[in-house]
């Protein structure tokens, strides 16, 4: 089932090393779906199809 934006936000927060939040924890990956142009988070190792894992771009942080 697709996750809501709230849950994705908490996963992004965790992937960026910011606390534990209420997402699915560090065992998730952020995936960019090239068909829909949307982000999804999935359990590590469970990616299927043509989604691209972009977790590294999140975990490296943003400027300022």
């Amino acid at each position: 089932m697709a996750k809501g934006l709230n849950e994705i936000g908490e996963d992004v927060r965790i992937q960026g090393g910011q606390g534990t939040g209420s997402g699915t924890g560090t065992m998730s990956e952020l995936v960019f779906n090239p068909t829909t142009g949307e982000f999804e988070t999935v359990a590590q190792g469970s990616t299927q199809g043509d989604g691209m894992i972009v977790t590294d771009m999140t975990s490296e942080g943003f400027a300022l």
Binding site: G16, E60, F62
Partner: peptide, 15 residues
């Protein structure tokens, strides 16, 4: 816009 939390609550800062 939904939660009112600042962006850096979600997006970490580069070290």
């Amino acid at each position: 816009l939904k939660t009112g939390k600042d962006m850096d609550y979600y997006l970490s800062h580069q070290s």
